[in-house]
Design a protein around this nucleic acid. Structure first.
Lengths: 361, 361
DNA sequence: TTGAAAGCGGTACCAT
DNA sequence: ATGGTACCGCTTTCAA
């Protein structure tokens, strides 16, 4: 906890060093560096020369303290190696950098305590916004928890942004950037149904996860729309990973029920399902069709390339950052009684080669 | 005009607010919060109650300025969505969090100017270390550039850490964490050769990229060791992406040369190569064998699962952070027998199902 | 044990 | 156009 000054730290030049060496006042140096105030060409050159000589950079902490400072966004996610999250992070980071903002990243490992600790840590950093990525469990508790985060952050002049998570009910100062999750699943299931599939194995994800629930609902609605009875017995819940896809298919192949297509909750799950099918000597899509969700690069790297639902992850990240940036600039006095904007982006089916009409023997 | 002028609403609560409301001095509050100084139980309780009431968190910038502060690592990489990089980042971030450190992330988009700007930005932040990920181009300039970064950072009490990049020559204050890149390629090529392959299409990566060069060298050495002439005409340089793998194979299939195996520079390139082979009606591995490099999750999601070289990316990240943390704490007394400046981790071949002896008609 | 006060490195307002 | 200087919020002597 106690951080002593480290050896070389004494060597870092300060604005006073620069002022002295250039024979000017600190105020002048500050002006030259900020560039937001008229300064004589002569002074500017004198100062800049010393700055280069000393390899001086301003101390960001001091600057923040004094009022200025670089706005910073914090991106908190479950796991940075998840392709979908990584794309959102890229969108946020890219948009942040474009505006000269900084990005902090933290991973929660799906641990509520770590999430709380990180939110507080970010609050200490005085970040302009905290972006939370990914689906959520436990709706009731989630709502309470996030509302608390939102207010806490808001009191510190920061903004909570929920990306790909349920938006908050009531009068809570937060921004939500979402995608048409259920609609995407509806379209994807419809695609399968219109190809003639009726017995489809559904692997929506974890039963308690918000995104999984939405995808399942979308699929159900599609079945209804097609006048096909949706059989709950065809659903297998589990994590968004390839192992789950593999096991679920392997087991269904062994113990039934019979199916002609797999509707996977994510592309990664679809990849696992594909492996299991192959291992059983089945061809995709000749014998069984598969579709995924997310449209991460993996989808087009598989053979056959996966028909899936495109989710604009990177764009969501960009949009999220833009939203807080706008709020920050335009903001000012009007943030009373606003229950947080709620932006939702569209999804669409990307047809590739993993679906064929069922061939009944 | 909103009339919300409730206590402390004019921004976030400061240590003075807490002190006042608790009827104690700011010094006492500071002591209670830092916890590194004896304090009466009574005082502690009084202060903590107010802290909770006000939902107070210390201002990290002020704390840093005053000498305390959370150590922060900056991770700079080309692109956060690259699986290999993401795993290194995960390792760094995880190890950092474990120690209560913070992680900043920046992406350079392979632009030297952005890299420079980011290094300076991180220097402003007073980060404990700047971790640079990924291969490097242009050896001579690279050496100069990095040496400059290293010294600049060092003068500010920060440490430059190069991960998966060439180490620096001469007496430069930097730490390198690397893996046995050439050795991995040597082993991988040997695997192919020992299976009987002699005509192998080599897709090492960009000609100027350090990792690509190492992988190519490793392959060449393996050919020599097997007494097989290495034909430069079998090499196709290009980026580490699936498109390059696809095009290179497609073109070789059309215009020659003939080959029975593909030695790809990364798993992603291998994925592209596999697609091209399939598109041409060739089977993997019956007609053509393929091997990759990196062992990212994709390798085992492909069909057939890819035989590849495992690189301990996440561990490298952990090791990198540990190295700087040790350096920071140890200050003078470092662990004996360990050269903390250049660490290199091992690689090994992971045999899966993408290789078979060649079948010559 | 607790309090008062001197910085830490900048910024910006007030003079000149 | 410059210089002087009072803060920003916190940590850490130095006294009491």
């Amino acid at each position: 906890m106690s951080q002593r000054k480290v050896s070389g730290d004494a060597g870092r030049a300060t604005i006073r060093d620069v002022a002295e060496q250039a024979g000017v006042s600190v105020a002048s140096v500050s002006r030259v560096l900020s560039g937001n105030y008229p300064v004589s060409e002569e002074l500017r050159r004198r100062v800049m020369k010393v700055v280069r000589d000393l390899d001086y950079v301003t101390n960001a902490h001091a600057r923040s303290l004094a009022g200025g400072g670089t706005p910073t966004v914090a991106i908190l996610m479950d796991n940075i190696t998840g392709a979908a999250f990584a794309h959102v992070a890229k969108g946020v980071e890219g948009a942040a950098t474009l505006r000269g903002w900084l990005s902090l990243v933290g991973t929660t490992g799906n641990d509520p305590e770590r999430e709380l600790a990180l939110v507080n840590l970010m609050r200490q950093q005085g970040v302009a916004a905290v972006v939370l990525l990914g689906g959520a469990y436990d709706q009731d508790e989630y709502q309470l928890r996030m509302a608390r985060f939102a207010r806490s952050l808001d009191a510190a002049g920061s903004r909570l942004v929920l990306v790909g998570r349920p938006s908050l009910e009531g009068d809570v100062p937060a921004t939500t950037v979402d995608y048409d999750n259920e609609g995407g699943a509806y379209a994807m299931a419809s695609h399968l149904l219109s190809a003639g599939h009726r017995e489809v194995l559904v692997l929506p994800g974890h039963a308690g996860l918000s995104t999984a629930q939405g995808r399942l609902r979308g699929a159900q609605r599609a079945f209804e729309a097609y006048g096909v009875t949706f059989d709950p017995g065809m659903v297998r819940h589990g994590p968004y990973d390839d192992q789950h896809g593999y096991r679920a298919v392997e087991q269904a192949l062994r113990d039934g029920p019979a199916f002609t297509a797999v509707l996977a909750g994510t592309d990664v799950v679809a990849a696992g399902a594909m492996q299991a099918l192959r291992a059983a000597g089945l061809r995709v899509p000749e014998d069984v069709s598969i579709v995924g969700y997310d449209d991460i690069p993996l989808a087009s790297q598989l053979t056959p390339q996966l028909t899936t639902v495109h989710v604009p992850y990177e764009e969501m990240g960009r949009v999220a950052l833009r939203a807080v940036a706008d709020l920050r600039e335009g903001g000012g006095g009007r943030r009373k009684g606003i229950d947080g904007d709620h932006l939702v982006l569209g999804t669409h089916v990307v047809v590739r080669n993993s679906v064929r009409p069922p061939t009944r023997p």
